[in-house]
Design a protein around this nucleic acid. Structure first.
Lengths: 298, 298
DNA sequence: CTGAAAGCGCTTACAG
DNA sequence: CTGAAAGCGCTTACAG
């Protein structure tokens, strides 16, 4: 085709405002040009922030590739049915799972449909068969605890997250990597209240502790409250490090030293991975480095 | 058709796992069976929470009606293009606008495409031509300030939100409705820092104030910090009321008395309205009542 | 290399 | 009331 002819055609396209009809195209190509973004079921509030960052990052990355994003929760019955319908009707080419530890039935479901998908965070039990991207939780924890150590803190405790999810487990491993001892560990469940209770228990068990690594910022809020009630100054008497760099970290008084997860990169890597899966490539796991953010609590 | 025959057909449908192909149907009906959810551009962090609640509520309500939801940001160029493409390609039947004051160009754009859409919050300048659902900001503000008054507070100040958006403006009107005077008003911009600065200015201007109504929870966090630094006890010396019932309100110390907006109902009303617009019905504005949540700061 | 035909899976008038 | 045909707007083999 001559360049001039091409030019003329493109001009005509622009002038008449022609636009390709996706439905017609999809009908014959069997490609939807859209993917599903699945929000995990429970605890909206706790998870609101990382999920939101993820969603924004994904819509952005997908737009760059001209593919649409269907958003979906899976908590109500109607939502689960609607999701199954979208998948079955060929409305989507793949799925992005915002969280793999929220409801494993979603992972099972997805695996059984043999639709390409990538999870955010390592999906426990499926690590080697499912594509996922995650922050380096273990290294992040190591980073925080090493930093605490570099501050001459000698009795460093930890409040863990849920240990049946990969992130909680890995953050504890990271702590152990540098502390070596299992003496000052109390398990939390990511809620602020659990952080408060964990700190009380830690304080009665080891009144001489001088630092605590908390596996999430929200729990750290509870830790801070317990410390305040016990009359300990932060950071003078005990240094507190969180994890996640959520807005809770900034709003905390004192502002929380924490570990930042690269949500922007996590999103774009998830999209890249999913598109490559849809293109027929094999799955992969991608682990992204974290960053220490020092504020007032250490 | 005999009921028996119907039964047999339905059984066959179930047995063979037949599922309707949306693309084929859309091609002929010219209906997409999906809508757009548009996230406003700026300040992810600040807006993360209400937007997220809204998104969850909308996916839920839409699932009940068997319609899909495309999520979209509009901050990047690619996103704006992709959105225009989806609209032009007939991929969506209507749009849900998460926030009307973030970028008015979206409202203009939407109006110009003549695609049905409903905004969350009154779209300044389009109140009578555009369908929207909003919380009753003015009444909510009245509710909070009346409550403060019932606590025998006599010098009630306010820190406003951005006054060029409907919600900020209405909340100030509500304050004036019950206080009557314009003496103790300082304008903020919804950021925590602006709350802090506003409180300092209020304190120097009226050291005898004994209550403050802050137009958002996040700003109230800043107000609390300024009060703490000034050595005022909350609520003993100064009672503080927020607005929004965001997670910031629960995490604040003392926990914030605030006004709850009914996000669940807002979502479902938005969906109902949009579906009726798509069905050819005329637009409407729906205003939903708020609720006072009393915690420790008053 | 170009152009006409077949077909993707539905819905909707239109005959029978 | 039932059944066969046309058509929605594309893409992809298949003749010319």
């Amino acid at each position: 085709v001559s360049p001039a002819a091409l030019q003329a055609v493109n001009d005509a396209i622009r002038r008449t405002g022609y636009i390709l009809n996706q439905h017609a195209r999809s009908l014959v190509t069997q490609r939807a040009g859209a993917v599903l973004f699945i929000l995990p079921d429970p605890q909206e509030r706790l998870l609101a922030e990382p999920n939101f960052s993820l969603l924004r990052g994904c819509t952005r990355a997908l737009a760059d590739n001209n593919v649409g994003l269907f958003a979906f929760g899976t908590s109500s019955d109607a939502e689960q049915k609607e999701m199954a319908r979208l998948v079955a009707a060929g409305h989507v080419d793949g799925a992005l799972l915002a969280s793999a530890h929220a409801g494993n039935w979603v992972v099972d479901e997805l695996v059984s449909t043999s639709m390409p998908f990538v999870a955010c965070g390592a999906p426990l039990g499926f690590e080697s068969s499912v594509a996922y991207v995650a922050a380096d939780d273990r290294d992040g924890a190591r980073r925080m605890v090493s930093y605490l150590k570099s501050l001459q803190r000698r009795r460093i405790a930890t409040v863990t997250g849920s240990l049946n999810a990969s992130d909680g487990y890995q953050r504890l491993e990271g702590y152990k990597d540098v502390v070596g001892s299992c003496e000052l560990i109390v398990e939390g469940d990511y809620s602020q209240e659990s952080g408060e209770r964990a700190m009380e228990s830690l304080l009665s068990r080891a009144p001489d502790l001088d630092a605590v690594f908390v596996a999430s910022d929200v729990m750290a809020l509870g830790v801070l409250a317990a410390l305040r009630r016990a009359g300990r100054r932060v950071p003078e008497d005990v240094a507190v490090g969180g994890f996640g760099d959520s807005s809770a970290a900034m709003e905390a008084r004192p502002a929380l030293t924490t570990i930042r997860q690269p949500w922007q990169r996590i999103s774009s890597e998830m999209v890249r991975l999913l598109l490559s899966l849809i293109g027929g490539k094999p799955p992969a796991a991608v682990i992204l480095p974290t960053e220490l953010v020092v504020r007032e609590s250490t």
